[in-house]
Design a protein around this nucleic acid. Structure first.
Lengths: 226, 226
DNA sequence: CCACAGAAGTGAGCACCGCTCTTGCTTTCC
DNA sequence: GGAAAGCAAGAGCGGTGCTCACTTCTGTGG
């Protein structure tokens, strides 16, 4: 392994600067308003120079998305790390961490869980870090507890059971189909709540939405037998 | 009431044409890509002429959003209209109608429940039709059934109970706090599921997501005592 | 040590965008 | 019939993403 040349170092630093500046700009506007030209202007370089680092605006966006997934996964893993707290407590805190992260940087949440950018098709690069997030979300709730969805005795269809098994497998989670179903449902609920909250659908009703969020998360913890 | 002059008629027709074309364009790209100029080009008019009908791009978007809410609310109301079907069946069909609507016109779903457009702040005009939607979602589940969230005996906080009551009041629903909580949770879950599904987060896991959706909705129906 | 390949940065340019403003034409209303 | 209001046109401003031919810089191998 040859040591990195100064040039490589410079390149990495410039790349990081571009990403940081882009993120900053994103924070004060929105995904649509990310302007390569503005970023270039701010790092004191002509717009076309940025294309040495990112082939297109979409590629920059993708880099930011991957970073966001990774950062979020880190947060969740930290909040859910195994320790003396009980499983319920840990899971509740993971949910809280997810909301805190989303509230602190709504633009990043929108980037990963908001509506798709124009023609933008998420490249395969993003699916692994995206998986890390939902894995971190599920882990504390996977270990302990007995529970099954209350599907009034209707057994899950074979197809669904299969999909659930595949998903659990892909996330390296050792949980049965019923529990996986509940976990996916809980994740969707949290994403939905945050989507609604961040987009102002709760204005006039739930503001702040802290209590609402906590009550619903507690309800899901109960259902999961935590 | 004087009869509408030809000019007024023409104006309405042009307005409708603009909206229709804009929607069409939206369907094949995304909210970001709605171009006033392209719309103008397509109806065979110079770009500045469109500003006689909508003061800005945002105003056009707002009009489309209101239309979308109204259309969705119509669909849900139709799916949930009281009849010989039981409450459970009706509510399940409302959920199904919501998903069907979203799958059939993902761009419109993104418009109303996706991440906020750039600097766009939803004007007050949108909150009433938005309310219609969630009301239609709740109505079939409001009437019958006994159920409470499984918050392990922890009573809801006073603040939350208040918020829930205000919300139920605003939606003209006669339901207690616990039930309102579950309904809001169910709505968030459905929105979350659709957000994830439409943005490709289920690729490789749940595809199609029909069975997943149905199982989770059935689970919520159980919790609601339907 | 220094020439030279390749990387980094430049600047002009293309086609597009939202939006404004002036300038005429047409319809409505008194 | 004439004034007022509505409508469309077209030029223009400042912005966007992206390309390309060009120069400047720099690290390395002979």
């Amino acid at each position: 392994m040859t040591p990195p040349t100064p040039r490589q170092l410079a390149r990495e630093e410039t790349t990081a600067r571009i990403k940081a500046l882009a993120l900053e700009q994103l924070a004060s506007s929105s995904a649509t308003e990310l302007s390569l030209r503005a970023v270039a202007r701010e790092i004191g370089v002509v717009s076309s120079a940025v294309y040495r680092y990112f082939a297109s605006r979409d590629e920059l966006l993708t880099a930011l998305i991957v970073d966001a997934y990774d950062d979020l996964a880190d947060h969740l893993e930290r909040a859910g790390r195994p320790d003396r707290r009980g499983a319920r407590r840990r899971w509740l805190e993971v949910c809280g961490a997810l909301r805190a992260w989303a509230l602190a940087q709504p633009h990043r949440f929108a980037l990963v869980y908001g509506s798709a950018i124009p023609g933008y098709a998420a490249p395969a690069t993003t699916i692994e870090p995206a998986g890390r997030v939902v894995r971190a979300f599920c882990v504390p709730a996977a270990a302990a507890g007995e529970a099954a969805p209350g599907t009034r005795g209707d057994p899950l269809t074979r197809a669904l059971t299969g999909q659930l098994a595949v998903t659990a497998e892909a996330l390296e989670l050792d949980v049965d189909a019923g529990r996986t179903l509940l976990l996916v449902g809980a994740f969707a609920q949290v994403v939905g709540l945050l989507t609604l909250e961040l987009n102002g659908h709760f204005v006039g009703g739930f503001e702040p939405a802290d209590a609402l969020f906590e009550a619903l998360v507690a309800d899901r913890a109960d259902a999961l037998g935590l």
